[in-house]
Amino acid sequence: MYDFAYHKPSSVADAVKLLAADPDARAISGGMTLLPALKLRLNKPTAVVDLSGIAELRGVKREGGTIVVGALTKHYEVATSAEIKAAIPALAWMASTIGDTQVRNRGTMGGSVANNDPSADYPAALLALGATIQTDKRKIGADDFFQGMFATALDTGEIVTAIHIPVPEKAGYAKMKNPASRYSMAGVFVARGPAGVRVGVNGAGANGAFRATAMEAALAANWSPDAVASIKMDPAMMNGDIHGSAEYRAHLVTVMAKRAVANAG
């Protein structure tokens, strides 16, 4: 990779200051996406601002009907958090399927959310759960936050600090992994809760994570795998590559939606 300056601030305010001062600086938490990109020299940041020393970004807590997850919370911590397992077991289980053990030991929810990789797991879950993303300066609803492939509502230098997730009545997740990369090829997170019945899809969409509104309507009327079984996704909205055509991915979304509902119970 190209060399860069390295900073490790201990407060959000300091981190924001560093990032504001240098538009070509990049924030890093777990680095599970950024570092592979840097190694392939796809990115040439002038500086890397390491958020891992900021204590205020850590921790999982329940505040009434909401789970608040600090941005630095690792996937492994999400998967094993007693609070999350009790409140949103589907989210904990989903976290246990992200990447491999070593990714889960380093990667963070905040990093994944801020990066919005189309084949990352969290964006679909947060869309389905109606989560709110808190940054150093504002709160943004998931629907507004995720804006297509690798695109978010974040301004340059803006840092995700926490994710607020309303506790659902029911939620479930299922995914088909890409056989080579093991990222999600088609993953569906379904939830019924304070935000209504919502379905988030990752991996398959041509423009990143999205909500499957036809499935939401069907599930609102009849919460059962059969309700989504006949809903066909539009292949024109899907991504196609050597691992599967857009038609295949469209089909997988329906299959995974059925399984996600079944998993939700």
């Binding site: 680095g31 390491d50 070593q102 380093r106």
Partner: peptide, 10 residues
């Protein structure tokens, strides 16, 4: 952890 996916300074 994967030692190839973490900076020494981290």
């Amino acid at each position: 952890i994967k030692a190839c996916t973490i900076l020494a300074v981290q």
